[in-house]
Design a binder for these strands. Structure first.
Lengths: 200, 200
DNA sequence: CCGAGGTGTTACAGATCGGTAACATTGGCG
DNA sequence: CGCCAATGTTACCGATCTGTAACACCTCGG
């Protein structure tokens, strides 16, 4: 319907399975979709899935790793679009998140996965934590490059606002507090950047 | 272990089941715990559960309704502790959330439930939405009472920060961005309250 | 043409899930 | 005591879940 993975029969079954899994995971939750539904949406079969992935958890890990890689690619796109301009990259990043709040093609996968995979020792947890740490480091660097004095503080403020907006979107809908996310986040950036040359 | 519901045999089986369900839902996720585990933790049995609740979904709804009622009680406690002082109630509310970020006895139930119950027509969705709307109205009223000019904006800022902090706690741990939540949120309150008598 | 590797099909195992029926047990109240 | 309602016990149903075994297919390089 929305993205007919079955019609992409020229792609490898492995890629179709991963894409179908990511789509269904976003739509029905990781625990709410079974491998049968995944291979059905991918126009493949269970045997092929288990020839590429040792278990469903292994497939989940691969899905999250791909989501992280796509995010890394987006960081590079931002750097290319605004080379050396951390402030512009930050604002473009926030604007993109605001624009994609309604759609489910965003990278909410990694955070909603953390809510759904409550087991502390699930193999995906390390993937999530590694991605989160890398993202934080990169945003801090952008803030510092933008001339913000307290880069860590702005970074954490933005991260809290972003994930709060994504979560609120799911519980309160588009007309809830997440509707004001773009303005709030951009105001925070400008507020910090404005007092850039005023340490303390 | 942590809270031995079984030893509270004087309480009604219904209450023990609901409490055990809420505890396990928080710990392993709504979809990650079965009715057998619930009645086992409650030292009851499946038949008694299904005599009180027509289905597992019905039990979920009751759990969320109780979480919402406890939140209403907390609003009343705040009003009693700081009668008529919206600013003090806001700051006490934020401080309490910050203190309870690590523990799982907070009311994250209603928001994490929204992530786990992806079906748009799940009976719990209306409970969640109703609670969220009421919470927003109440916080807006507190902001307005605190003399804040743009009460809705501060309310939504706080709501985004709070849910972002709770979500980040689960994916990045206690040392992540959520560690700075208390300072960020309190600064936001004071910033808005400071410019209270300066509309626009 | 032929053999081999990746793929698809069918069937099934073992476990767990939500939910129910029939019956035994308990505790409180007259 | 004896009754009654709530609760507990056991066994089970059908559906669904992850994961596997055996076998058929099909394409492509030598």
């Amino acid at each position: 319907m929305t993205t007919d993975i079955c019609s992409q029969s020229r792609r490898s079954p492995r890629d179709r399975i991963v894409d179908a899994a990511r789509y269904l995971f976003r739509k029905h939750g990781i625990r709410g979709v079974g491998v049968d539904a995944i291979v059905d949406a991918a126009c493949s079969n269970k045997m092929t899935l288990y020839r590429h992935f040792s278990s469903k958890d292994d497939l989940i890990v691969e899905c999250l790793r791909r989501a992280g890689m796509e995010m890394d690619n987006y960081w590079r796109e931002l750097e290319d679009a605004h080379p050396g301009d951390g402030l512009a990259q930050l604002r473009a990043w926030v604007r993109r998140i605001a624009d994609h709040l309604g759609a489910n093609d965003c990278n909410c996968e990694l955070m909603s996965a953390a809510v759904q995979l409550t087991d502390e020792d699930h193999p995906a947890r390390s993937v999530i934590k590694r991605f989160k740490d890398a993202q934080r480091d990169h945003v801090v660097e952008l803030c510092r490059n933008a001339g913000v004095a307290n880069a860590e503080l702005l970074c954490d403020t933005l991260l809290l606002l972003i994930e709060g907006a994504r979560l609120n979107q799911q519980s309160s809908g588009s007309e809830g507090p997440s509707a004001r996310f773009a303005g709030i986040a951009d105001a925070a950036i400008l507020s910090f950047a404005g007092s850039s040359s005023v340490p303390e």
